[in-house]
Amino acid sequence: MNSPPPHVRVIASPQSWVEGEAIRQLEAASRLPGMRSAVGLPDLHPGKGAPVGAAFASEGLFYPFLVGNDIGCGMGLWELDLPARKARPDRWAARLDLDGPWEGNTDAVLADMGVKPCGFEAALGTVGGGNHFAEVQRVDAVHDAETFTALGLGTDRLLLLVHSGSRGLGEAILRAHVDRHGTGSLVEGSDEARRYLARHDHAVEWARANRATIAGRMMQGIAAGGRRVLDVCHNSVTPKPYEGHTCWLHRKGAAPSDQGPVVIPGSRGSLSYLVLPLGDGVNHAHSLAHGAGRKWTRTSARERMRERFTPEALTRTSFKSHVICEDRDLLFEEAPPAYKAIDRVVQDLVDAGLVRVVATLAPVLTYKTRTRRE
């Protein structure tokens, strides 16, 4: 396929540190056949074969391995009907448990959201591992009152941010592709491309239903109700008009800039940012940072944090918020110092003219896992 040379861009200021391996992975992906654009966002960091915090546009074909195994992973934000003054993180932390299978009617929930069952329903309503979480938050400050009010938000209400994906479904879809094609592409319009996209789209919708079910379990656990404010996907491949062509836009740990406001969270010990995307999206592949991005590998974080903190110390943060994480390895791996500074990541987006900050949100209680792994 004859294509113009791909455009590679890294959106990060000189004050932001981006690991060389992440740049190498970005450039390697940019040289794949059919690739027209590769964009690294301020949270760019190395992944398994391809960087996280990146977006890629290809023409005529697409690459499932660039999406990865957690197809549909994303974040949903709910406004709760609880005033911030009624937060009871000590009490909530003692009783919340989202690790076991949800006891509700999974078929009914999926049907209500127009999603077909997939065989992985035992995991519906569970957060999963890695950097996934469900976090009760309070409004720290409002920076764009007009947009904040237009979203129907109130400064006195608690919020719930859920970060999770398609669990084992996405893994099974990628594994089936890799078993046949490795890291190879699928040609637009081919039978195999259509089959993959059908399964991909199913996983995206299943992941959205999973986040909604997690939110429902959290709300039941803290005796609250709520309404969904937004839900966006970070791992996907979709057709998109791009630079005068119809391209395939891959997002790997990248928030969409073409679907309204998004939340960009930091670590569990920092603020999250509710932002409004700006601009036409062309120079940044219609994408934004999806979080702070890892600064240390998981192995490095475990070693460093064990030397500095006890597990008990990491269950509280500088915001006096609580962290539910009974997996000690995960507690160290997800420690706040293992991540880049979210303030710097968001400032890079602001300086590039890509977002306007609407509000900052502070953690009250973060749920990771009740599963013990000593």
Rank of each mutant, 00 (worst) to 15 (best):
G68Q: 01
P51M: 03
L77A: 03
K48D: 15
C73S: 10
G74F: 13
E59Q: 15
R36C: 07
H45K: 04
D70A: 05
I71V: 11
F65S: 13
L41K: 08
I71E: 02
H45T: 05
V67P: 06
C73N: 02
I71S: 03
A50K: 07
Y63W: 08
K48F: 15
R36E: 11
A57E: 06
P64R: 08
G68P: 03
L66I: 05
P46Q: 12
M75P: 02
L66P: 05
P46Y: 10
K48P: 01
N69I: 14
V52T: 04
F56H: 05
I71F: 01
P64K: 10
P46K: 11
V52I: 07
G68N: 00
P51K: 03
L61M: 15
G47P: 06
L44M: 08
R36F: 06
G40A: 08
E59M: 15
A55V: 04
A57C: 14
A38F: 02
F62V: 01
F65Y: 14
D43V: 05
L66A: 01
A38E: 00
G53M: 00
E59F: 15
F62Q: 01
D70Y: 08
G68C: 00
P51H: 06
L44N: 03
G76Q: 00
M35W: 13
V39W: 03
F62I: 00
S58T: 14
N69L: 13
F56V: 13
G76I: 02
M35S: 10
M35D: 06
V67R: 00
L41C: 05
S37R: 13
A54L: 04
M75Q: 05
